[in-house]
Simulated scan of single mutants.
Amino acid sequence: MAQPIDFNKSEQYILSIRLSTDGFSFSIYHPQYESEAYFSSSPVNTQRSMAANVKAYLTETEELKHSFKQVNILIHTSRYTTVPLELYEDEQTELLFYQNLPPQSNEVILCNILGKSNVVILFGLDKLTHLFLTEHFPNARLFASVSPLTEFFSHKCKQNEGRKLFAILHPESMEVIGFEKEQLTLLNSYPTSSLHDSCYYLLNVWQQAGFDQEKDALYIHSNTQADQWEELLLVLRKYIRKLYIINPQMEFNNLTLSLIKQIPFDMLSLTSCE
Rank of each mutant, 00 (worst) to 15 (best):
I246V: 10
S20F: 01
T77C: 04
G23M: 08
R163W: 04
L202M: 12
F137Q: 03
A209F: 14
K127H: 03
L110W: 04
E135I: 02
V44M: 04
R241K: 13
D90S: 14
S145I: 01
P171N: 11
V205I: 15
L64G: 04
L257S: 09
T46D: 09
S16D: 09
L233D: 04
E161Y: 02
S193E: 11
H136V: 13
I109Q: 07
L203G: 02
E91G: 12
D212P: 03
G210V: 12
L110C: 15
Y98T: 14
L95C: 00
T81H: 11
N253F: 07
E274I: 08
L95Y: 11
G124R: 02
Q12P: 02
L186E: 14
M174N: 05
L184I: 10
D266E: 14
I240E: 05
Q104G: 01
Y88I: 13
N72D: 06
L270P: 03
L233S: 02
I17V: 15
P103I: 12
Q183V: 12
H170Y: 15
N53A: 10
Q32G: 00
L87R: 14
P103A: 02
Y29G: 07
S194Y: 10
H170E: 15
K116G: 08
S20A: 15
K261Q: 15
E34S: 01
S154R: 01
T134A: 04
I168H: 06
Y29I: 06
Y33Q: 15
V108Q: 13
Y201F: 15
C111S: 13
S117V: 11
M250E: 08
L133H: 05
L202T: 14
H196F: 06
S49I: 10
F123G: 00
L218I: 07
L187V: 11
A167R: 04
I17K: 01
H221S: 06
Y244T: 08
F123P: 02
E214S: 09
E34W: 00
T81N: 10
Y80L: 11
A144G: 02
N188L: 04
A2H: 07
I113W: 02
Q207R: 15
T77H: 07
A51Q: 13
I14A: 01
S154A: 08
